[in-house]
């Protein structure tokens, strides 16, 4: 590891959650505009987290604080790995570990809604993980290596070699941003059927840290999507922005699906498309 990689890793550690927070802010502004509202200021997510940090609330389980911190470390680690040009597949596994810790913390909670949310979180994991992994395998095949720098150094945009993984990646973005129709494990508002699902039992500082972990996750997912057109930093940002915008539009025009539909229909269809693309890359 040379010094340059080290600086990049540190930059990833600091910038990734900030970018994720900004994405959350953009999300709220754009959603408000789509619904003809003013919406909160861009920096509102940061104010929210700041306020949560100052709250001391009784936990719902003795274990939650530990799992929250593990989730945060795993999420930040996956960002750092991408920034340092590490193996993208391993980065993906580390990011999945973070999701597992969030679910485990929810299992430990004492509200039934929390445990219900944890179950659904796991089914979401089951639905998006394979297609996400196959998407990464497609990129690795086209780039000829598994490390992030090779993905970014690939000749020409990867998109044209793997158009069929786009629906899958969009599905992943929707799930990871907890957007409708896949806000199955956790809704944004607590008056809905799952209350807040997997988040029900998290509160105060633990919840603030979880929110930062979520920002870091969002950055990882959008970053991996942006590999599709990685010819310059600008195209990467635009690609990620397009995925984000598409997710917001879909969020506003669709209603929540059940986990059965997600697991029985959406996941297999996107997976078959992505697999077809992978096989096609091998036949070329």
């Amino acid at each position: 590891m040379n010094l340059n990689t080290f600086y990049l890793a540190v930059a990833g550690l600091i910038l990734a959650p900030l970018v994720g927070g900004l994405v959350a802010g953009v999300d709220r502004v754009v959603t408000a505009r789509l619904q003809s509202r003013m919406g909160p200021p861009l920096m509102q997510p940061f104010y929210d987290v700041g306020k949560l940090m100052s709250k001391v609330i009784a936990p719902a389980s003795h274990w939650q604080g530990m799992f929250v911190r593990w989730a945060l470390v795993a999420s930040l680690a996956s960002d750092v790995m991408l920034a340092a040009g590490a193996d993208v597949l391993m980065c993906f596994f580390v990011q999945a570990a973070s999701a597992s810790f969030v679910a485990l913390g929810a299992f430990c909670g004492n509200s039934p809604y929390s445990k219900l949310g944890a179950q659904r979180e796991l089914f979401q994991l089951l639905a998006y993980e394979p297609v996400f992994m196959v998407g990464i395998l497609c990129m690795a095949k086209a780039a000829g290596a598994f490390d992030a720098y090779s993905f970014m150094a690939a000749q020409g945009p990867l998109l044209f070699k793997m158009p069929l993984i786009v629906p899958g990646l969009l599905f992943v973005v929707l799930v990871k941003l907890r957007k409708s129709p896949f806000d199955i494990a956790a809704s944004h508002h607590m008056h809905q059927e799952v209350v807040r699902g997997v988040y029900t039992d998290y509160a105060g500082r633990d919840f603030a840290l979880l929110e930062i972990a979520h920002w870091a996750d969002v950055t990882v997912v959008l970053w991996i999507c942006s590999f599709l057109w990685a010819t310059s930093p600008l195209t990467m940002v635009v690609t990620a922005g397009l995925f984000l915008f598409a997710a917001l539009v879909i969020d506003n025009i669709s209603a929540r699906l059940t986990w059965r539909t997600m697991l029985g229909r959406v996941a297999p269809i996107t997976l078959i498309l992505a697999t077809a693309n992978l096989v096609w890359l091998y036949l070329e």
Binding site: A58, P59, H62, W63, M66, V68, G109, N110, S111, S114
Partner: peptide
């Protein structure tokens, strides 16, 4: 954190 929280009184369950 576990050590710190294991002394805490737990919240009433949300049901």
């Amino acid at each position: 954190v576990l050590g710190r929280q294991s002394q805490a009184k737990l919240a009433t369950p949300y049901i």
